[in-house]
């Protein structure tokens, strides 16, 4: 049994991971903004076999609460073996082009709040010499594209941050896994027509949960995004900038 803290616990991908954790009888501490939805998720996980489910409603962009959230999780679970950083919003690209305030606001959610939480978690895990961090980033962060670069640049920052953190903690027993998720069929992508590249949140969640058992450095989920993004990254910029992406 593991004790896992989930930040952004109401997201469809996080719920997929939480369900797998529940099947294994893990103890969970869930943090998300919407209290009513959080209670619904918690009920579901209890039925699915979670040994404990604690919830805390919080807006994670309020960095002044981050230490208190971690204190609460440690107090409720006794100790935290692993943390999943899963919160995020898909930025409305045209809106961000019209109004940089949209960009700032979403950057706060997708990068700054995550980096702050990861810093606190890393410091605590490093001090005691154990812990697994799993961060949900995106293939959108691998290269800026005109259709999605507001979101992509925040995820690029998050991927770089996780990479640096992994480097810093390499000598300790703390692991950092960057999950680069491809297209996932979730409420976040409800408005997009689905094609064969879309994965289910349940399948993705199960794969993410495995990163607590077998930590890896960078995982592409589903796996086929690794070669796809290899190609996308290899295109020379003078060609790339002409493409309709």
């Amino acid at each position: 049994m593991k004790r896992i803290l989930v930040l952004g616990a109401n997201s469809a991908i996080a719920q997929g991971a939480e369900r797998e954790a529940s099947r294994q009888g893990d103890a969970l501490f869930l943090v998300a903004r919407n209290e009513e939805h959080l209670a619904q998720v918690a009920d579901d996980l209890r039925v699915r076999g979670a040994s404990q489910v604690h919830t805390l409603a919080a807006d994670l962009t309020d960095a002044t609460r981050h230490e208190a959230i971690l204190d609460a999780a440690e107090a409720a679970l006794g100790s935290v073996d692993g943390a999943l950083v899963a919160h995020g919003v898909l930025t409305d690209q045209p809106a961000a082009e019209r109004d940089p305030e949209v960009l700032r606001r979403d950057f706060d959610v997708n990068f700054l709040s995550a980096a702050s939480l990861l810093t606190h978690l890393a410091n605590r895990f490093e001090a005691r010499g154990s812990g697994a961090l799993v961060v949900i980033s995106s293939v959108a962060g691998d290269r800026g594209r005109q259709s999605n670069y507001a979101y992509g640049s925040a995820k690029a920052a998050l991927s770089a941050f996780a990479s640096g953190l992994r480097n810093r903690l390499a000598k300790s027993r703390v692991t950092v896994t960057t999950v680069k998720a491809g297209f996932v069929d979730t409420p976040m992508t409800a408005h997009v027509a689905k094609n064969a590249l879309f994965a289910s949140a349940g399948d993705l969640g199960r794969a993410i949960y495995r990163c607590f058992d077998k930590p890896r450095d960078v995982v592409y989920l589903p796996w086929f995004w690794r070669p796809i993004m290899g190609v996308v990254r290899a295109v020379p910029e003078r060609l790339f900038k002409q493409m309709k992406l």
Binding site: A12, Q40, V41, D43, D44, V47, R48, P187
Partner: peptide
């Protein structure tokens, strides 16, 4: 299909 949570058993 997004309403796929259990509530009590």
């Amino acid at each position: 299909r997004g309403l796929d949570r259990f509530i009590a058993f």
